[in-house]
Write a protein that binds this DNA or RNA. Structure first.
Lengths: 253, 253
DNA sequence: CGACGCATTGAACTGGTTCAAAACTCGTGG
DNA sequence: CCACGAGTTTTGAACCAGTTCAATGCGTCG
């Protein structure tokens, strides 16, 4: 399978895994390399396909090569709640480390390449390269802190603050910290943004319009340019600290 | 320090840690025992005191002997968001495993006994008893699934569903599955319940009144009896599966 | 007892939802 | 190349669950 899907998202830096897997071991393998050697071949998936569903007995973690994936659950009432979006260079499905089954579903948002990492082999690797386990611990713990942040967003922030934060977060993860252009090609619909932010899709649409009118963004369907990072950040209530956090949290469960 | 604080919460079963720490090692120590040997002596705290604040460089996990603790963060706007309540037998502060600092604050809700487990010693123990690390992994991963649940609550459920689910969850954790009485002595204020559920304290108060009027509960200040578990469960949208989940998730980060 | 913190209750308000319909995008095939 | 059509997105208008503000009531701990 080829890898030239013409998506802005695919252009994100791969192997940011390095930040979470310390490479203080100067032997044959760094922990990151050791872990990635377990990964199966990249496999292609199309929008709507799934890597796993909540409750599946599938002992694999997954690594995004290119494209994007949503993690979500279905409430008792049948509504969808998105727990996070996974972008290139990120690992997901971490919650399966807690037991035999996945606690959420993973659906593909666009043409996407993914590699599987078998959990039993990861566990076996702990013996040989103890630092790998450290790295996994770190990913799990960071994911918990990401979710704490998201809980604050869902229960305390206003719609416009949620959306501004979402756009800035996506931009930071896709483009890296020192990128100047701030153009995003969204792989998710307004409905999916709403599912993630706890808003109706109409609210997302109206808000994007308002941001455009106020000169914060320039939106053309799913192509969004962030024109005023400063004011978006002020709206989102971001401190320098929280911006730094985003870049250090390149991983998802 | 004595341990006879007259709180219903203190009567909860200790050492439910067993469920998360597999004891397939029949040597001198079970993983759970090995872990608990690292714990310092029980120390007493009063309402309002803290075990740690977000950002503290404190490399300890904590185990609740008796009493209760809230984990919370403060939003950019200065509002409090409670991430969870920790009850006897539960371990918290797990997010410090991801780095040098805690990602949330831990405040004591009533007279409480807590034991500290130093993270470096836990790591050292991994070498001797590999199953301990497995157990910690499991706790982290389960905590992620708990937070997924809470995100669904915060963004999709109505106020009455949130409160019903909260009361049932507390009851299950405090009394064990086969307890008949369903009487709770809350250690948190209406305000704190609201902070956890994403509601105003007035809404919590009004709803408790409505539950009483409808015969679901019998409330007298912080003493609440759940009179109709069936209907509360229906309101909360709980399936058998989700009830089973609660008991298997005895731990918090 | 007296007082302060907590809880209850009422009334007005509002941010975001819901429902409904029109307009747009983009892939597909004629 | 353009027209078609399904799925998205936009926009408008009414509505409502829960909040906010403001008193009043209760309990419990000096």
């Amino acid at each position: 399978m080829n890898t030239d899907f013409s998506s802005a998202i695919s252009a994100a830096p791969a192997f940011s895994l390095a930040r979470a897997m310390p490479s203080n071991e100067h032997s044959t393998h760094s922990p990151r390399e050791a872990l990635m050697e377990l990964a199966g071949p990249p496999r292609g998936y199309a929008r709507g396909q799934h890597l796993f569903h909540a409750g599946d007995r599938d002992a694999n973690l997954y690594f995004v090569e290119s494209g994007s994936v949503k993690l979500y659950g279905i409430t008792a009432g049948g509504a969808e709640q998105i727990f996070g979006f996974c972008l290139p260079g990120e690992l997901f499905g971490l919650d399966v480390l807690g037991g035999p089954v996945h606690g959420c579903s993973a659906g593909v948002l666009e043409q996407t390449m993914v590699r599987a990492l078998p959990v039993p082999e990861i566990r076996a690797l702990y013996q040989r390269v103890p630092a790998v386990q450290q790295g996994i611990h770190r990913l799990l713990a960071r994911r918990i802190n990401e979710l704490y942040d998201q809980m604050m967003v869902l229960s305390k922030k206003h719609a416009d603050e949620r959306l501004a934060g979402f756009l800035l977060g996506l931009d930071a993860r896709l483009s890296g910290p020192q990128c100047k252009v701030h153009k995003l090609q969204l792989s998710m619909s307004r409905y999916e943004i709403g599912c993630y932010l706890g808003l109706a899709l109409e609210t997302v649409s109206r808000l994007l319009r308002r941001f455009d009118d106020e000169g914060l963004t320039c939106t053309r369907a799913r192509r969004i340019q962030l024109c005023d990072i400063e004011r978006l950040g002020a709206l989102a209530g971001q401190t320098m600290a929280s911006t730094a956090m985003i870049t250090s949290l390149k991983f998802s469960a």
